[in-house]
Structure formats: structure tokens, C-alpha cells
């Protein structure tokens, strides 16, 4: 059971010119076992949606609600949200010098599981998850994201998805900057996660390419801080053929 419900979510950020509204009332429900793709042009607010749900302090919620299985998410701290079952695969994961991947993963798993994982099975699980992402065993001794290539960062994010086993995963442009081989590896990882019982996925992307490997149940076109149109996989095909022009034309100027 896992339902992420976003209702009329409004979000602003502080800029030099005062507060700026980015999300202007987003409503979206991701039910049990569903994969939703959010597609949209740059600057439409897709990433803001991802980071707002995860609780990044930069984003100020000015209206609406977000619930996970009926429980208010917005009153939770960032780490409480993760422990409640939310996961955000980031587009630009930051370096944490001196903290090994192995230490980081174990600390995260312990925090989420409420107890330290059994050592023997855990080491096997970690090595397996890294291996499936084409990351060799020495990877776990490196500092988190330090000196990682773009592809390694994304594969590390998906390895975490597999190990931390959240209820709902938000993938923020996980496909960006990946070559085709890395894209396949990452997509396979996401698909393995989807095969588990009752997992929700919110896949944020600029391109249709990843949707050939991860088949969404629903596709939403995101423009100017709102869902402009929702549909099935056919909507992605239309975007692939015609781009975002139709949706951009519908947006009043000055927004």
C-alpha cells in the first residue's frame, strides 16, 4: 500500500526581487504500483516539485497538501519524510568528502530500518546492488559522489533506491547526461524496483528517451508550474513527435 497524494501544491522561492511563485497549484495522485512520468520544458518547475516533496529548505510551501498514505508529509523534516518511505534520486547529488559509500549506505539503511542491518546479508546486498549497476566492489570504499562521473552518480542513486526500498521514488532527471548503456542499466534498476509490491514512481524527465525503457502508466505535461495535461503513454509519443509547442502556446505570456 502506498499512495502519494499532492493537492493544489503551491511553492515559492526567495529571489533578489522578492518571493517568486514556482508551483501554482499542482495536483497529482500516485497510487499503488503506478509509475507517473512528468515531462516538461526547462524551467517549468518539475525539479521544484521533486525537491518540495522531499523537503528541501529552499522551497517554501504556500498552499496545498502532500500526503503519503494519508499522513501529512509537509510537517515532517527531510529525514522523517525519507523514513516515512519517500526517496528522491537527485539530478546533481552532492559530494560528501571523507564519507565512504559503504558507511553512508549502512547509516542510511540503519536510519530507515530503525536498526543496523545484519552484517553478512548487508554486505551481500550492497555488493549485489552495486554490481547490478555495473559498479565494482571498490566503489563502496570511495567517498560519496566525490570524483564520480555523471553516470556513476546516477547509478549510485539507483543502487540506493534498490537498497533503501522506499514506498515512493521520485526520480529527478535521472536520465540526463547518461549514454545509452548507462541509461539501460539505470532503467533496469528502476524496473526491478517497480516489480516489487505496491511501489510508486514519479519519473521527472525532459526527454522521452527514458520512457522507452521505463513504461509509465500516466504521463503529465508540466508547464509553468502546473500540470497542463494528463494522459496515458500516448501523450509521451505526441511530445516526442511534436515537442512542447502546443502546451507553451497555451500559457499566457508573462507567466
Amino acid at each position: 500500500m502506498s499512495t502519494l497524494e499532492i493537492k493544489d501544491l503551491k511553492v515559492q522561492v526567495q529571489t533578489e526581487d522578492g518571493p517568486k511563485e514556482i508551483l501554482k497549484g499542482v495536483t497529482l495522485t500516485i497510487k499503488d504500483g503506478e509509475t507517473h512520468a512528468i515531462m516538461g520544458p526547462n524551467g517549468s518547475g518539475k525539479s521544484t516539485l521533486a525537491y518540495s516533496v522531499a523537503g528541501h529548505p529552499r522551497y517554501e510551501i504556500t498552499g496545498g497538501t502532500v500526503t503519503l498514505d494519508g499522513v501529512d508529509v509537509l510537517t515532517m523534516s527531510v529525514d522523517e519524510r525519507a523514513r516515512a518511505g519517500l526517496f528522491l534520486a537527485m539530478q546533481y547529488p552532492v559530494e560528501v568528502p571523507g564519507v565512504s559509500v559503504s558507511n553512508f549506505l549502512r547509516t542510511a539503511k540503519t536510519a530507515i530500518g530503525g536498526e543496523a542491518p545484519k552484517l553478512r546479508t548487508w554486505v551481500k546486498d550492497v555488493n549485489g546492488a552495486l554490481d547490478r549497476m555495473n559498479l565494482d566492489a571498490t566503489f563502496s570504499q570511495r567517498s560519496v559522489n566525490e570524483g564520480f562521473s555523471g553516470g556513476e552518480k546516477k547509478r549510485h542513486e539507483i543502487a540506493q533506491l534498490e537498497l533503501l526500498d522506499p514506498k515512493v521514488a521520485i526520480l529527478d532527471e535521472t536520465d540526463s547526461g547518461l549514454d545509452i548503456d548507462a541509461l539501460k542499466v539505470v532503467s533496469e534498476g528502476v524496473n526491478r524496483f517497480r516489480e516489487r509490491d505496491g511501489k510508486g514512481v514519479l519519473l521527472i524527465t525532459h526527454y522521452t528517451r527514458i520512457l522507452r525503457y521505463i513504461k509509465p502508466d500516466h504521463v503529465h505535461v508540466f508547464v509553468a508550474g502546473r500540470v497542463a495535461e494528463s494522459g496515458g503513454p500516448e501523450l509521451a509519443e505526441e511530445l516526442e513527435a511534436n515537442g512542447y509547442e502546443r502546451f507553451l502556446a497555451a500559457v499566457p505570456s508573462g507567466v
Binding site: 529525514d79 525519507a82 526517496f87 540506493q160 533503501l164
Partner: peptide, 12 residues
């Protein structure tokens, strides 16, 4: 850095 770690369930 703190946001990244906390988004993995790790307390502040």
C-alpha cells in the same frame, strides 16, 4: 550535503 544525507533518512 546535509539535505542529501537527510533525504536518505539520516537525522540532522
Amino acid at each position: 550535503q546535509l539535505f542529501y544525507l537527510r533525504s536518505r533518512g539520516i537525522s540532522e
